[in-house]
Simulated scan of single mutants.
Amino acid sequence: MLSGLVVAIGFVLFLGGFAWGAVVYQPYTVPTDSMVPTVTPGDRVLAQRIDGAEVRRGDVVVFKDEQWSDSPMVKRVVGVGGDTVKCCGDGGRLTVNGKELDEPYIEVEKLDVADAPGGSASRTPFEVTVPEGNLFLLGDRRGASIDSRAHLEEAGQGTVARSAVSARVDALAWPSQTMLERPATYASLPGGVSKAGPLRLQLAAVVAGAALVVLGAAYGPVVRVFGRGRRKQRAGVR
């Protein structure tokens, strides 16, 4: 009875973790190199299904905007409604509301510019005030990404409505298995950064469930073997 109960609990955790993950997350294959080095072409990512209202600065999001492309795209949110996003500040860094961002995840463009000895966060200079309800999006590989900078002359200055966002990337699933950390540089700005999704908890449920199934299935036979051994010992003593 104990063995069966442990196996049953294990199956519930194992299948429940998978089902929970299928409801909350969607897999997505990144086709371009615009998010290198964070995400490379062909990487399989897990993106948490969210409402656009939940998006925070620093999030890597999946969205679809007809003015950009007919296919879903993956970019990083650097500005939200009311923000003034500018490039570039001292040392070639991006600024949000006058605060320079430390973006260790980007691939900077090396420029022969006296006031930007370390490179530049963008070859295209710009200054945009993001409309309320919209997002300013950039790729991490600034030299190759077609992002908000390519749409500065359009209505909204290249911004995208929050409602266009369908998911937020939480982890790389293949070929590597890595959680995407929230950039600390955005934490001091109003609203802070988003919280991690429930992926770790879901994985823990799956692993714990698998372990319980194996242990529960093995418990019965092990007890029976030991039980036979003890009975034989008692019979021998008599």
Rank of each mutant, 00 (worst) to 15 (best):
S3F: 05
G4F: 14
G4W: 09
L5R: 13
G10N: 12
L13T: 14
L15Q: 11
W20S: 06
G21I: 06
A22K: 08
A22C: 12
V23F: 14
V23D: 09
V24C: 15
P27K: 14
P27L: 14
Y28P: 15
T32L: 09
V36M: 13
T38H: 05
V39H: 03
P41A: 11
R44K: 06
R44D: 07
A47L: 00
R49P: 06
D51S: 13
G52K: 01
D59A: 13
D59Y: 02
V60Y: 01
V61F: 03
D65C: 14
S69W: 05
S71C: 14
P72A: 10
P72V: 09
P72C: 08
M73N: 10
V74K: 08
R76T: 05
V77I: 04
V77W: 00
G81L: 04
D83K: 01
G92T: 02
L94I: 02
G98R: 04
K99V: 09
K99T: 08
E100A: 09
E103V: 02
P104Y: 02
E107N: 09
E109M: 15
K110M: 08
A116K: 10
G118H: 06
G119A: 04
G119S: 07
A121I: 05
F126Y: 12
F126D: 09
E127S: 11
E132Q: 13
L135G: 00
F136N: 01
L138V: 06
L138E: 02
G139Q: 01
D140W: 00
D140E: 10
A144Q: 06
D147C: 03
D147S: 07
A150S: 11
L152T: 03
E154P: 11
Q157F: 02
G158Q: 00
T159P: 00
R162V: 05
R168F: 03
T178G: 07
T178Q: 07
T185S: 11
Y186I: 02
A187L: 07
G191F: 01
S194P: 12
A196E: 07
L201C: 15
Q202T: 06
A204P: 01
A204F: 07
A205F: 03
A205V: 03
V206P: 03
V207N: 07
A208H: 13
A210P: 08
A210W: 04
V214Y: 13
V214R: 06
Y219Q: 15
V222N: 10
R224H: 12
R228G: 11
R228F: 15
G236L: 13
G236M: 12
